[in-house]
Design a protein around this nucleic acid. Sequence first.
DNA 1: GTCTATACGGGGATAGAC
DNA 2: GTCTATCCCCGTATAGAC
Lengths: 216, 216
Amino acid sequence: MQAAPLIETKITKAERTRARLIEVATRLFQEHGSDEVTVRAIAAAAKIEAGSIYYHFASRDEIMRAVLESGVDGARQAVMRAIEEAGADSSPLLRLRAGLGAHFKYTLREHFSSRLRSIRRLPKRLREQHMAQEREYAAIFAGLLREAERKGLLRPGFDLSVVRMLAMGALTWAAEWFDPEGEMSADDVADELMRVLGGGIARGAGDQASGDQKRL
Amino acid sequence: MQAAPLIETKITKAERTRARLIEVATRLFQEHGSDEVTVRAIAAAAKIEAGSIYYHFASRDEIMRAVLESGVDGARQAVMRAIEEAGADSSPLLRLRAGLGAHFKYTLREHFSSRLRSIRRLPKRLREQHMAQEREYAAIFAGLLREAERKGLLRPGFDLSVVRMLAMGALTWAAEWFDPEGEMSADDVADELMRVLGGGIARGAGDQASGDQKRL
DNA sequence: GTCTATACGGGGATAGAC
DNA sequence: GTCTATCCCCGTATAGAC
């Protein structure tokens, strides 16, 4: 059907099928949680027979890993785009807000919380591949926090790595309770988080609201 | 061995075995994640044969539910105790800190994150029983936030229910990354969360640190 | 590349003896 | 109450035809 004279660059049928399998698996993992989904179910959803899957993947774990890989990669791209759209010269905290919002929305779409336990079950090799990718992803947010600190935008005394994990964890968990049908939008949640993260909930001017235990 | 003349109040062998099973199952769920643990494994750890379990529980799901029940109950007690120790006349935010700390420490010990997906898998009946218990638990924290608001301790404009879920979610997730062997203690994490929650990370006096997007 | 058929194992659960 | 034996289903994965 196509010209495609360069055999080297041609997308093979296998590649297309493989891509479709990842796509379908992602959706199923998202809907039912990665544990629930059987190879047979993935096959059925991809309109293929179960046995055929093993032409494309060596094991179920490999499918899992491929899904995670494409997922983290997609999240990374979405987050980077949001950050760029916020403008490179905007406040790092504004960019952080943009990044967290994109992260949350992506998590909701791909529902990556499915990873939770499943990751531990992955064979070491596959797991570490994934972890490396995750660290890279986290570095985006860590970088913004560091930049904010460097620019003197932050109150001193925070362990930024902990702050980052708390903030991202709040959103990861939010993907569990968030109701897309509800009154709040994903952006509302991200905004609320950022309001808390930025200024805290306690009243009191400046250092009085510093959140030290004594002030509580 | 014991007098125990009142047959009605005597703890039967069955009750003891059942309790032991819950105990053992809790530990296994905590260590390996609730999905990983088989009925056979629970039986083995309780030094009993697999089949015998079904004298005490109708199904694996029932074991699961019992574990969750005793878990949430334990957490509730621990949190209430911590709150009481903080003193009924102390600031609600100080009590919130105490409660969150206890919550986190309990989560670490019983590692309740194992619940994550597993809950969805529970038959409706069992799941709703658990959800009700969870709501009751959450109400403890919701109550403290409301009290703080009533006493004028909070900046206005927050959706406290969202704030609560974000804060608890941050800790739930923290149980995943927290390293008991690391330099930070569980209390350090809870403190850091409370510092962020209370005063925010952004510099700037009073309303300037209000965390509105424009200020970022 | 994809199909069909099937091996293999493991997990939940039951039956009936003790 | 607990044991032993066993059923039955379902999941992953393989083999070989097409």
